[in-house]
Design a protein around this nucleic acid. Structure first.
Lengths: 156, 156
DNA sequence: TCATTTTTGTTGACACGTCAAGTAATAATC
DNA sequence: GATTATTACTTGACGTGTCAACAAAAATGA
């Protein structure tokens, strides 16, 4: 309770969120690097592609899916094309955009990494929490999403 | 439910956590940049110093406080010293380490930023959630912390 | 149809974070 | 007290993420 703006409980919860972020996420990205030699950003792009069910995904759609901005994706795809995980393809209907597709290497990488990473998530997140706690998280995310959306829309 | 490793609920909760991370945190760091011209890393260092109550904090202690590794702090302090927010001082008793102290600029910056940022946190986090949800977060963080600590200790 | 606006993406600069390799001082051990 | 191990930090390389400035295609609309 540094100031009296936040209540004690609010402050503790904020620190709790920070703690989750600083402990769980680095741990998981490290595991991912160890068992699959993928960074988190690479993993997210590959999952997004893999789960789309389509051979190629348009950049702007992937951005919406990942909640990334286009500049971030552009940089990331440039790097991943260089390392051979994805290909960049022109869109047939719109000469501005591009599509991203999995290479064979990329497909193998994600098919190997996905179950391993889900095991990690289960082990140090899913199985560590109670059903009530999992439900709370889902509610919390929704409450925050709604709030931010209202803020955002007003600003734009 | 992409694979059947995680239960549906676990998977949704995992996505919820991801959603919180991707929506709330960028929003808050952007606000911080807007109202105080500080990055999140700068803010965290300044808060750590300010709340220590001492004129200077030793690097390793600040690392423990922030859950940062020393390399990260070293880089960060180098940048912040260049921009005039902190000073680097030799420790009196141990010639290996260094201490960090607030400059006047840094002190003014944090005294201005802290209440503003707490208002933001209250507005889009603390006041958005119920008391039960706040308590859940505190419990969740503790459960994860304990789990990771056990994992970590075994590995070291 | 022509001009304007919007959408889509690129690029460069810069701050950030991690890793691995190194250095130097202190602590521990014999 | 000399050797060894540990601690505390530095540095460089590299992947990441944001911002602002830019470019070009597509949609809008007068």
């Amino acid at each position: 309770m540094e100031t009296n703006i936040l209540t004690e409980q609010q402050f503790k919860a904020w620190r709790a969120l920070h703690s989750i972020r600083m402990q769980l996420l680095p741990h998981l990205t490290q595991r991912l690097a160890t068992h699959s030699e993928l960074t988190e950003a690479e993993f997210l792009v590959l999952v997004s592609l893999y789960e789309s069910g389509t051979p190629a995904v348009r950049a702007k759609d992937m951005c919406r899916n990942l909640t990334w901005e286009i500049s971030r994706l552009s940089h990331q795809i440039t790097r991943m094309e260089a390392s051979g995980l994805v290909n960049k393809v022109d869109t047939p209907d719109d000469a501005r955009g591009f599509q991203v597709s999995l290479t064979d290497t990329g497909k193998q990488a994600i098919e190997r990494a996905l179950p391993l990473q889900h095991l990690e998530i289960k082990h140090c997140f899913g199985d560590v929490l109670t059903a009530q706690q999992l439900d709370s998280l889902i509610e919390i995310a929704e409450a925050i999403r709604k709030h931010i959306e209202d803020e955002h829309k007003r600003q734009r």
